[in-house]
Design a binder for these strands. Sequence first.
DNA 1: CCGAATCCAAATCGATACTG
DNA 2: CAGTATCGATTTGGATTCGG
Lengths: 126, 126
Amino acid sequence: MSGFRPGDPFLADCPARLAVDLIADKWTVVVLYGLSEGPVRHGELIGLIGGISRKVLTQTLRRLEAHGLVRRHARAEAPRRVEYELTPLGATLIDPIHTLTEWARANGDAVLDALDAAPEPVAHGD
Amino acid sequence: MSGFRPGDPFLADCPARLAVDLIADKWTVVVLYGLSEGPVRHGELIGLIGGISRKVLTQTLRRLEAHGLVRRHARAEAPRRVEYELTPLGATLIDPIHTLTEWARANGDAVLDALDAAPEPVAHGD
DNA sequence: CCGAATCCAAATCGATACTG
DNA sequence: CAGTATCGATTTGGATTCGG
């Protein structure tokens, strides 16, 4: 997408859309981040992330699994153990995510300041 | 977030969450991309993006405006003209987004292949 | 410990029609 | 041309409960 022209909707065939559809929800990026340093168990992710329910975590992991970004590994032990880890493909997504979080760390305050400066439901009904 | 320890939920204070909350919806990234090459009018964005309704585009732009990423410029002319452009802060988000879309371009096929290889509603109910 | 099922609340999106 | 209002369909997330 190194350049588009007006009149060309860069809709379905644009790679951006694929990436967005993959990560544009409340938890996907955080889950991937949680897996970025090695295999983690389901329950550990729950505690690590904080605020996510088991159901939603499972849903998120299932989707990532179906997309080939995460691998599930169930160990047959006494207390059931299920670990999740990034696939090689999934690991390649860590860099872009890292770039994004770096941006947030550098510019987060500026965004919050802007939010603070314009709390009114900005109406341009002029 | 150069390293977290289990037991530390990296929840609210993690910069990743701010970035995700900003862009984790269906249109924000695409809209920012549409503005990445200069000021664009409301109607142009509609045609450029394709598939977005005026209402949702307006909502998206309002939120970006409130967050200080987009500036609105209403010209007083015969046919009404309203242009939107990235603020300097908003422009800094283009790089991370570009990194993400580059990933999609490079790995999109692999993701689609994985999706294709596992179309069953992968149930691990053992 | 892990995850599926059910039920429910809330946010999101889209189509349409109306205003200046 | 730009924006708002309203309504309804769909999606999403959360709480709880049940089962292996």
